[in-house]
Design a protein around this nucleic acid. Structure first.
Lengths: 165, 165
DNA sequence: ACATTATGTCAGCCTTGTTGACACTCCAAG
DNA sequence: CTTGGAGTGTCAACAAGGCTGACATAATGT
């Protein structure tokens, strides 16, 4: 109780409250991915395809290595997903101009269309949650999430956001 | 623009901001699960085992059907996980007293120990994010997350929380 | 008696992670 | 210039953990 301001503001964090926060993350994350998963299921794709499409859309022309760092999977795993997306004409892979070892990835028109469909579903849910909770809650939400990320990952995330304002 | 108060308070929600919120959820969720995943990997378990252990700890004596509803997987999938946990002596399955068709699930001492180890890792990260962000941010965080969950899922979540205050 | 419910199990499939092996490209040191 | 190492991407094979479908068993309720 009678402590400094700093530790007083920590006292509200009981184990139980923290636990509830963790569970809330779990359920909310599921809520956010359920609709895209449903759409993807009908197309014989999975969440991995969504992630690839999402980040290629976000940073057009990105390389495979770039994508690997952001997604945190092995290149073999990513490659399988990319291969099907390329075969199906959703993603285009161009040999790098400066360095021919690299592949620059782009969404095709079809790919962009699917991306829009998937992110619309998520944005609708997110937007409605934001609306329910109000602007101040949203600010807090973002603040906590950013603290929860890996420092390293946040760096990559930030560099991603630079490419498209 | 010159609209009602209600729609003015929606204008801060640009597509780009929403998109960033979605990405933040993705990265934060990964941050939250990375450490438990690492621990589980060394024990030949996966995230599915963690989920089962978590919710059995949360609601000791819960039934298989209950767990199925909360986790949203098929009984075949859950059963595979439960079987290994029971074989390894982390979970105990007792025939129901009132309804002998049911199985009541409990963590053994070993199971409780692993649960503590896993949730300690998560709580540490969560607590530090909470501390960084401050009390008001945490309130907003919780508010947004709760809006993001499925209504149906929130009901189950609430009934779970009733069992342990 | 009979239908329903709760659970468990077998078989087989898909997605998506993993490792290992390998090929191609680039660059720098000899 | 060549050669060796580092970087990048691809192919093959395997494991975890989702899924569906079919079926067995036991307990319950009508």
């Amino acid at each position: 109780m009678g402590e400094t301001y700093g530790s007083e503001s920590l006292l509200f964090l009981t184990d139980e409250q923290i636990r509830q926060g963790i569970e809330a993350m779990y359920f909310a994350y599921r809520g956010l991915t359920s609709e895209p998963d449903r759409i993807l299921g009908n197309l014989a794709y999975g969440r991995a395809h969504h992630r690839a499409i999402h980040f290629i859309n976000r940073a057009p022309g990105t390389t495979v290595t770039n994508l690997l760092e952001i997604l945190g999977v092995t290149k073999q795993s990513l490659n399988r997903v990319l291969r099907t997306l390329i075969e199906d004409g959703l993603v285009e892979s161009r040999v790098g101009k400066i360095d021919k070892r690299e592949r620059n990835l782009f969404l095709t028109e079809t790919g962009t269309a699917l991306e829009a469909r998937l992110s619309d579903a998520q944005r609708t849910r997110m937007r409605s949650a934001y609306r329910d909770a109000g602007p101040e809650a949203v600010a807090g939400f973002r603040k906590v999430l950013e603290s929860m990320m890996d420092t390293e990952l946040r760096r990559k995330y930030a560099s991603l956001r630079e490419t498209k304002s």
